[in-house]
Structure formats: structure tokens, C-alpha cells
């Protein structure tokens, strides 16, 4: 009944599990701490494991691009370019960008859910390079983006898309899209650390993504737009991305749009990466 009697009884009645636990505790060595790249890749591995266990998350990356490609090709094809065949040459690189940017949004909601569940408490209490959990998550997302890009490209080829830059041009264009979406990912990580629910993260993301994608040169040539909209399209980083992707996939010189895309990406990482890590200190 007293404190002491229960203590001894507990220790005496310890099952063999305790002995094994003691052994496990004793046998542990301290490996040398891994570097930032290693921990980031480990978190990327975690993202891949999650895809393996929850393959449903590949649904959106395959269905979205198919839906967009078909919808916009046949919706605007006739009206804008006379024929769907002509329009798809113009549209497809842009629709790749649109598809991937739409999916980047899930980065934020996924992080919000993770934060609520408490896994990140453990990650944040580990002695590792702080951003690696987020970098790894974005690297894992790059796999999903690659699937989306591939699906769009294959469907495009079926519908008559014939890029002048060939396979090499496609790869460079895809790399640009991946770079930009990795950078944009930091906007969503920041939002999900700022906002309290995944619903609000989704809402605000939509609010950002809609003007970014539709207020760009993805669907139509901006020369037909009113001046104020043209001005917006001109400064919209998505337009630079689309212009350069269109160029490298079409096998022509991307001009200033290529360095502009890279500068924008770097700036997004610098600004929103910093903001994200500032919020991450006290994340909840």
C-alpha cells in the first residue's frame, strides 16, 4: 500500500521486456551527426514512404493535369487559335506550369496537418539542421510534380503537341518548373505556420494561386488584355516561368525570362524561406 512496497513489487515483477529495454538503452552508440543534405534527403525518403502508404495522394497529380489539359485545350482551342492542334503547341508548356502550381498548394495543407498531429514536435526537437524537415518535404513533393509533368506531357503528345526542343528541351523546362515550385513551396510552408487550420491555408493559397496562374500568359497572349492586366501579367513571376519553359521546350532562345525566373526563385526562397524558419522556431 505504501509507496515503497509498490516500488519494489514493480521492479521485481518486471517482465523480460524491461531487460531488453535496458539492453537497448545500454547498447546505443552516438553516431556522428549527419549534415544538412543527408537529413534533408532522409526527410525526402519519409515523403516517398508516405506516398507508398497513401498512394491516393497521387490521384490529384494525375487527375488535375489530365482535366486541365483536356478542358482548356478543347474549351479555348477553337476560339483562340482556330484549332486545338495549333492551340496545344502554345498551351501545353503553360498547362504544365498551371498543373504543378495548383498541386504545390497541398504542401501547405500537408504541413499544417503534420503540425497538428505532433510529428513535427519530434522533428523540431532533434539536433539536426532546422530546415531539413521542410526541405525534405519539398523534395518529396518534387516527385509528385514530376509525375504531374510527365502525365501532362504524355497526354499532350497524344493530343498533337510536338515540342521543337525535343526531349532535351522538355527536361530543361521541367527542371525550371521544379525549381520554381520548390521556391513557391516556401510561401505555403510560411502560410501554414502562420494560419491555424488547414482550411484557411487552403483558402489563402487559392487566393494567391488564382491570380498568379490566370493572370499570366498561360492561356492567352497578353497583348489582347487591357493595360492594367498586362502590367500585372508582365511582373507576374509565373509569366516569366511560362515564357522560358515555352521557349526551351520549343527550342528557341528564352532571353531574359530565364534569368528572371531563376532570380524570382532565389528571391522566394530567400524571403519566404527566412520567414518560414522564423515561424518554425515557435511552430504549433
Amino acid at each position: 500500500m505504501t509507496l515503497d512496497s509498490t516500488r519494489t513489487e514493480g521492479a521485481g515483477a518486471a517482465p523480460d521486456g524491461s531487460a531488453k529495454i535496458l539492453q537497448a538503452l545500454a547498447s546505443s552508440e552516438r553516431p556522428t551527426p549527419p549534415g544538412p543534405l543527408s537529413t534533408s534527403l532522409t526527410f525526402g525518403w519519409r515523403a516517398l514512404l508516405k506516398i507508398k502508404h497513401v498512394p491516393e495522394q497521387l490521384f490529384d497529380v494525375t487527375v488535375f493535369p489530365v482535366m486541365f489539359t483536356l478542358l482548356f485545350t478543347f474549351l479555348f482551342g477553337g476560339a483562340l487559335a482556330g484549332s486545338t492542334e495549333d492551340y496545344i503547341q502554345f498551351l501545353l508548356p503553360g498547362i504544365m506550369v498551371q498543373g504543378v502550381i495548383m498541386i504545390t498548394m497541398y504542401t501547405g495543407t500537408t504541413l499544417r496537418t503534420d503540425l497538428e498531429k505532433g510529428v513535427f514536435d519530434r522533428f523540431r526537437s532533434l539536433p539536426i539542421w532546422r530546415p531539413s524537415a521542410l526541405v525534405g518535404m519539398l523534395l518529396g513533393d518534387a516527385v509528385r510534380f514530376t509525375i504531374s509533368l510527365t502525365v501532362t506531357a504524355l497526354l499532350g503528345l497524344v493530343l498533337g503537341w510536338r515540342p521543337g526542343g525535343g526531349f532535351g528541351g522538355f527536361l530543361v523546362g521541367a527542371a525550371l518548373i521544379l525549381l520554381f515550385s520548390f521556391s513557391l513551396g516556401w510561401v505555403w510552408t510560411f502560410l501554414s505556420l502562420l494560419l491555424r487550420t488547414s482550411g484557411s491555408v487552403m483558402g489563402v493559397s487559392m487566393l494567391v494561386i488564382t491570380p498568379l496562374t490566370f493572370g499570366s500568359n498561360i492561356f492567352v497572349d497578353p497583348s489582347t488584355m487591357p493595360g492594367w492586366l498586362q502590367a500585372f501579367v508582365e511582373v507576374n513571376p509565373v509569366s516569366h516561368l511560362v515564357t522560358s519553359v515555352r521557349a526551351v521546350m520549343g527550342g528557341i532562345d528564352p532571353g531574359a525570362s530565364l534569368p528572371l525566373t531563376i532570380v524570382w526563385s532565389a528571391a522566394l526562397i530567400a524571403v519566404f524561406g527566412t520567414l518560414t524558419m522564423w515561424r518554425y522556431r515557435d511552430a504549433r
Binding site: L49, H53, K117, S125
Partner: peptide
């Protein structure tokens, strides 16, 4: 130090 939080601090989707 190590922390075992009040709510599961492992990834539920993983084994």
C-alpha cells in the same frame, strides 16, 4: 534530450 509528446509524436502514416 528527447521528447515524447502528449499526442503521438510519430508519423502515423508510416510503419
Amino acid at each position: 534530450v528527447s521528447l515524447t509528446g502528449q499526442f503521438a509524436s510519430v508519423d502515423e502514416d508510416l510503419t
